[in-house]
């Protein structure tokens, strides 16, 4: 069944025709060319595909594109204010070497931002470790990701984002 969908992605209104079975991540990657959102598993566990739908982190591999019809979607491409100015969480990952191969990174950053907001910008190592249950990284051993998110939380608070 082909359906038309329309949503706001990174502040731009986009639309397209998709099969009902099209996942949001497929719509983002294939229709919109927003390939920063990745697919790392097929059982909704790795979290490489995390985006924000109406401000809340979701796994875009476990959401139909048609379910996001009319929603406001933010992907990793929509975070930085400009090429020069990264989002404080992106900057914190860079500062703390919170990424290696980069594949899980977009999902990690998107999850981290939601996690930090949910905890009112006050996170501890323990909160972060527990809060990353839905994101798998194979490179970093999480040590620097955790450091980055704790630092990113303070930076987000300071920047008011």
């Amino acid at each position: 069944m082909t359906m038309s969908v329309s949503m706001s992605v990174n502040g731009k209104t986009v639309s397209g025709n998709v099969e009902a079975r099209t996942l949001l991540v497929q719509f983002l990657r294939e229709n919109l060319g927003l390939t920063g959102t990745h697919v790392g598993c097929d059982t909704s566990q790795c979290g490489a595909c995390v985006v924000h739908v109406d401000g809340i982190s979701v796994k875009s591999c476990t959401l139909l594109a048609v379910q996001a019809d009319g929603a406001k979607v933010t992907t990793i491409e929509g975070l930085a204010k400009s090429a020069e100015q990264l989002h404080p969480m992106q900057e914190a990952f860079r500062e703390n070497h919170g990424l290696q191969c980069g594949f899980c990174t977009p999902g990690m950053v998107m999850s981290a931002i939601d996690l930090v907001k949910r905890h009112n910008y006050e996170v501890t190592e323990e909160i972060v470790r527990h809060g990353l249950e839905g994101n798998i990284c194979r490179c970093t051993g999480y040590h620097n990701i955790v450091k980055a998110i704790v630092a990113g939380a303070s930076a987000m608070k300071a920047a008011g984002v």
Binding site: S44, G47, I56, S57, K59, R118, G131, E133, G134, N135
Partner: peptide, 9 residues
Amino acid sequence: IGDGQVRNR
């Protein structure tokens, strides 16, 4: 339950 993203949906 599940993880943060599962709880959001």
